[in-house]
Nucleic acid binder design. Structure first.
Length: 380
RNA sequence: GGGGGUGUGGCAGAGUGGUUUAAUGCACCAGACUGUAAAUCUGGCGGGCUUGCCCUUCGGUGGUUCAAAUCCAUCCGCCCCCA
């Protein structure tokens, strides 16, 4: 069985929260960690330099997108994604499994993999589990993911069961391909398996046991935060996390909102990724310690204070709400960067706060303080 | 002085007798966004409340008509051409 890159440092005395480290070739990641998403290899609207002072430790990219453009051969020739995009910290690539969900209508799933019709030019491309691994190997991120199908919600039992079982077969093939030429020592990548099974507890458990049995460097939970009620998501976590060995990282894919980070760390999650800070930033929504706001709204037109007095990001250091409100209303492209940057800072700073609370066994105290402030503006 | 045209909701601009509180776009007011086909999408945008209705709207006034933003008269404003 493969050795994982995770080291457990401390377990909370209050709940299932953990402090840990993930070792990669490009550096050590303190967990729990929030990983912002940069589908095309960059956080949309945020230059690397702007993050040099931040707590961003690792970013995501997407193998489907990079495979289509610029093409894996370009990235390979550049010397890997981190050489290509000049991000000298860890990266993780998703397998294309999420696109099996989001590109519904222009993709076909079969036993051997997913056929995509390119959203760019309509050309057809086939991602087998092995192909996804080869693509991710060429891209060269530190952590790579098995090809899976992110099942939508709601999903009937039969569909979820068949999809989950197909996912297990794919996971086996991914692992086999990953180890085929024993390239691991050369690239020092880690391959994570993904647990599926929608909201059905027996399917989730079966998936967990089988994925564990195949054995991966870390374990991701997929197919959540796709529209199911929060309680469903929490009960899935409570159901399967106790089964996963404590020496492995647990990664909740696609989550989430600030409140989700607290709730899911509390249940034992180590890694999160989400597009929310950047996408919502581009749409004018800003996270602050006093709640979320839409900076385009009238109430900020003459508000000359920073977005968040508790924030040390470049946006908050340099610009007022009134000015950002003006930039958004004027559609001046600078706001895309400034708001995305602030939101990314907010999420990773929150994660730093959460890590400290686990270290000092003040998780619930900190959580309470956060929520009291966060919901002080409105009831969200 | 003569001839022609035109005036529609914050703006632009459809509509030329009924299905019109009046298309569409912009602006404005909100909301949503969770492993990124998203700098996107959705809703609202005359007034009132008992939220289903009532009242008020297409330069002004007065008519015709069962019915007028739409037809007629007149007044006012603006534009173009000729003197």
């Amino acid at each position: 069985m493969e050795c994982g890159p995770y080291e457990l440092i401390k377990e909370s005395s209050e709940c299932k929260a953990r402090r840990g480290k993930i070792y990669t070739a490009r550096g050590i990641i303190d967990t729990p960690v929030f990983m912002p998403v940069g589908t095309q290899g960059t956080l949309k609207g945020v230059a690397n330099e702007l993050l040099s002072d931040s707590d961003v430790q690792i970013i995501l990219a997407n193998s489907y997108h990079l495979y289509l453009r610029p093409g894996t051969e370009v990235i390979k020739e550049a010397g890997g994604i981190q050489r290509f995009n000049s991000w000298n910290k860890p990266m993780l690539t998703d397998s294309g499994g999420f696109q099996a969900f989001s590109l519904k209508g222009i993709r076909k799933i079969s036993e051997n993999g997913v056929e995509f019709q390119s959203h760019i030019d309509g050309s057809k491309h086939f991602f087998s589990p092995e192909k996804s691994i080869r693509v991710q190997r060429d891209i060269g991120a530190d952590i790579i993911m098995c090809l899976d199908e992110c099942v939508s919600y709601p999903s009937d039992y039969e569909y979820a069961k068949n999809s989950m079982e197909l996912g297990l077969r794919w996971a086996g093939k991914c692992k086999e391909e990953f180890w085929r030429d024993n390239n691991f020592s050369k690239t020092r990548q880690s391959l994570f398996g993904i647990i599926q099974g929608s909201v059905y507890s027996d399917l989730r458990l079966k998936s967990t046991y089988e994925i564990l049995n195949i054995g991966f460097g870390g374990y991701a939970i997929g197919g959540l935060s796709v529209g199911e009620p929060k309680e469903e998501m929490h009960s899935v976590l409570e159901n399967i996390l106790p089964v996963i060995p404590s020496g492995k990282a647990r990664y909740l894919m696609g989550v989430g909102m600030p409140e989700d980070l607290w709730e899911c760390v509390e249940r034992g999650i180590d890694m999160f990724d989400c597009v929310i800070p950047t996408r919502n930033g581009r749409n004018g929504q800003v996270f602050t310690s006093f709640g979320k706001i839409n900076i385009r709204n009238l109430e900020f037109k003459k508000d000359f204070s920073p977005l968040d007095i508790n924030c040390r990001c470049p946006t908050c250091k340099g610009y007022s709400k009134a000015y950002l409100n003006h930039l958004v209303r004027s559609k001046e492209s600078l706001y895309l960067s400034l708001l995305s940057l602030h939101n990314v800072y907010f999420m990773v700073n929150l994660m730093t706060t959460i890590r400290k609370s686990v270290e000092t066994d003040t998780f619930f105290k900190s959580k309470k303080e956060f929520f009291e402030k966060y919901y002080s503006r409105n009831q969200n």
